[in-house]
C-alpha cells in the first residue's frame, strides 16, 4: 500500500528526514516512536503533503501512485488521513459543512455517488457515537472552543466519516486522559479492516496497549534505526532510547 524509499526532507534548508525507508501493507498497524526532534511529525507532514517541507530525494508510492507528485487534497482523496497532533480551529465553518465538503470530495474520487442528506446525517451520527462525541458539537465550528479531548475525538470522528486507506495518527494520545484515550483507541480499532492500515506516531507505550501494532519502528535523527514487534515498545518504555542511541555510536 505504502512504500517509502530513502526519503530525505528539509524545512527551511535544515535536513530533518535523512533516509527513511518503510513499507506498510493493508491490514497492518505500524507504530513510530522516537525522542523529541527525531522527525516523527515531519514524516507525517511530508506524507500528508505539507508545503513547508521540501523533499530532496527518495520516493513514496501509495496504492501504486507517486504520492510526492500529488497536492495535499489529492493525497487525502486517495485515502491518506492525517490525525493532527494539534487539530486546527476553524471559526465560522461548522463540522457538518466541513465534513460534507470533505466526504463529497473523497467519494467523488472513489467513484461513489454523493450521499443523500439522510445518509450523510446517519453516517455522522454513527461516527459521533463511535467516539462518544456529543452530537451537538457537530453543529459547532470545527474545533472552536473544543477541549483537547474533544479535538482528538473529532479527528477520529472525521476518520470514521472519510474511511481512509491509510491513517497517520500523529500523537493522537497527547493531551488525552485515560478515559478519552480508551474511547479514541476503541474508535481506531473499530475502524480497522483487512484493507486499511495505520501509522501510529506516539511517545508512549500506553497507547500501544490499546492500539496493538504489528511493527514498532524507532526513529532517531531522521532515520529508522530499529524495527521490531510490539515488545520493542515495552523495552523503550522501561529502558528509554539511550541504549539504542549508544548502540548506534
Amino acid at each position: 500500500m505504502l512504500e517509502i524509499n530513502n526519503l530525505h526532507a528539509n524545512i527551511d534548508g535544515t535536513p530533518i528526514l535523512k533516509g527513511i525507508s518503510l513499507r506498510v501493507s493493508p491490514g497492518e498497524v505500524h507504530a513510530i516512536m522516537g525522542p523529541n526532534g527525531s522527525g516523527k511529525s515531519t514524516l507525517a507532514s511530508v506524507l500528508a503533503g505539507r508545503s513547508e517541507y521540501t523533499v530532496t530525494s527518495g520516493s513514496v508510492t501509495f496504492m501504486g501512485r507517486d504520492l510526492l507528485a500529488l497536492p495535499a487534497e489529492e493525497r487525502a482523496r486517495l485515502g491518506i488521513f492525517l490525525g493532527f497532533q494539534y487539530p486546527v480551529e476553524i471559526p465560522g465553518v461548522s463540522i457538518a459543512n466541513f465534513m460534507k465538503a470533505a466526504v463529497a470530495a473523497r467519494r467523488a474520487a472513489m467513484g461513489l455517488p454523493e450521499l443523500t442528506p439522510a445518509e450523510f446525517l446517519k453516517q455522522m451520527r454513527a461516527a459521533a457515537a463511535l467516539v462518544e462525541l456529543d452530537p451537538k458539537l457537530i453543529k459547532r465550528a470545527v474545533n472552536e472552543g473544543f477541549s483537547g479531548g474533544e479535538k482528538k475525538r473529532n479527528e477520529i470522528f472525521q476518520m470514521a466519516m472519510l474511511k481512509p486507506a491509510l491513517s497517520i495518527l500523529d500523537e493522537t494520545d497527547s493531551g488525552l486522559d485515560i478515559d478519552a484515550l480508551r474511547i479514541v483507541s476503541q474508535g481506531v480499532n473499530q475502524l480497522r479492516t483487512p484493507e486499511n492500515a495505520s501509522i501510529v506516531i506516539t511517545h508512549y507505550q500506553r497507547l500501544l496497549d490499546y492500539i496493538v501494532p504489528d511493527v514498532v519502528h524507532v526513529l532517531y535523527a531522521g532515520r529508522i534505526v530499529m524495527s521490531g514487534g510490539k515488545e520493542l515498545a515495552k523495552d523503550l518504555e522501561t529502558k528509554g532510547y539511550d541504549w539504542i542511541i549508544k548502540s548506534l555510536n
Binding site: E73, R77, V88, A102, Q158
Partner: peptide, 11 residues
Amino acid sequence: ALFYMQQRGIS
C-alpha cells in the same frame, strides 16, 4: 486552516 481542510480532500 487551509492545510487542515486540504488534508481532508477539500480543494
